[in-house]
């Protein structure tokens, strides 16, 4: 998932760098406030440890070439969970990614902003909050860590595919399917290793695992989050199979008004529909049009699975946006 240089136009690379810098600054503030400045060396040494952890390779659980394809752990979820803050993951992964980019050439310099956002910011935040929510609801650390590890790898890979699609260097449908499937499989390693590593750390050094005070955990809120995500994903999977292929009320009224469709039937006269659109454009003088990234809730080239993927993607983007905005608003108070 380390995007190399040359796959983003320079303008987009700069935008990702700016976003990444905001999170790096926030993680530095966290390090100073939560860990006290003097303890920064501890995080630095831990970053070296995470770098070593990323070197441990393992065969994929499902592989066409037995033992041929391998995956390794990123460790963002583990770092965030153990140190009790997603900013810990941002801080550590930034150090690791800078070293990988500048010293090994793994991941580009101009693309480093996007890599930090994907693996550090998204990996850390998704891993941390998924673990907290699932653990509060089900009271099962192992399951929570597994799901958190899996999500911390899968969602960033989807976002990586979208970033490359926006850059025009990887078709969206192909990127989402290949990156999604590959990382969904590798995610099993990430999830499993995160869960077993966490259980070992909890038994061996319970004092270092960041704990949430009971006052700060709100079970109802977490339950609502988990149930909400589950319902939204269930709708996303089943909706395309139950969705009507016919135009909705507003579309239907518009088409009927221009004689492109009879009000009592569902048949549309395609040529008249096109004429109706141009007539409206002429009348209103509004010729603005925009090609949606996922037109009609589907991915070009894919049938039903494309619709499912498009809706799942939309749900997750809205969830991240909504969660981010609500966190921002509540922090204001």
């Amino acid at each position: 998932m380390h995007i190399p240089d040359g796959f983003f136009p320079i303008s987009q690379a700069i935008v990702y760098w700016i976003i990444a810098l905001v999170f790096i600054a926030l993680s530095l503030r966290w390090a100073k406030r939560e860990m006290s400045e003097e303890k920064v060396p501890l995080v630095a040494v831990l970053a070296a440890g995470i770098f070593a952890i990323q070197t441990l390779n393992m065969a994929l659980p499902i592989s066409v070439i037995p033992g041929g394809v391998s995956g390794h752990v990123v460790g963002a979820a583990l770092a965030a969970i153990v140190l009790g803050s997603p900013f810990a993951a941002v801080f550590i992964l930034t150090l690791v990614l800078v070293l990988q980019g500048i010293f090994f050439g793994d991941g580009g310099i101009t693309a480093m902003g996007a890599n930090i956002i994907n693996m550090g910011v998204l990996g850390g935040f998704l891993g941390f909050y998924t673990y907290r929510s699932v653990n509060t609801v089900f009271r099962n650390r192992f399951c929570a860590a597994f799901i958190a590890g899996w999500i911390s790898l899968f969602i960033p890979s989807i976002v990586c595919a979208v970033e490359l699609a926006v850059a025009g260097t990887l078709p969206l449908a192909f990127g989402l399917v290949t990156m999604g499937v590959y990382h969904a499989v590798i995610g099993i390693i990430e999830g499993g290793v995160t869960a077993f590593a966490l259980s070992l750390i909890i038994h061996a050094r319970p004092d270092i695992v960041g704990s949430e005070s009971p006052a700060r955990t709100n079970k109802t809120k977490d339950m609502v989050i988990v149930a909400g995500i589950a319902i939204a994903l269930a709708i996303a999977i089943f909706a395309p199979y139950y969705a009507s292929i016919y135009p909705d009320g507003l579309d239907s009224t518009f088409l009927s008004a221009y004689g492109a469709k009879d009000t009592t039937t569902v048949h549309i006269n395609e040529s008249k529909a096109v004429l109706a659109e141009s007539a409206v454009a002429e009348k209103t003088g509004n010729t603005f049009s925009w090609d949606a990234p996922l037109p009609d809730y589907t991915l070009p080239g894919l049938e039903k699975p494309g619709e499912v993927l498009a809706i799942i993607f939309g749900v997750l983007v809205l969830f991240i946006l909504g969660f981010g905005i609500s966190r921002f608003i509540t922090r204001q108070h």
Binding site: L42, V45, L46, A48, G49, I50, A52, I53, L56, M58, V73, G75, L78, V82, I188, I189, G192, V193, T194, A195, F196, A197, L198, S199, L200, I201, A204, R205, I208
Partner: peptide
């Protein structure tokens, strides 16, 4: 996976 997880956990604790 368990063995790898424990190895990762060990490296994590040792680095900490």
């Amino acid at each position: 996976i368990k063995q790898l997880g424990y190895t990762v956990g060990t490296i994590f604790i040792r680095s900490y």
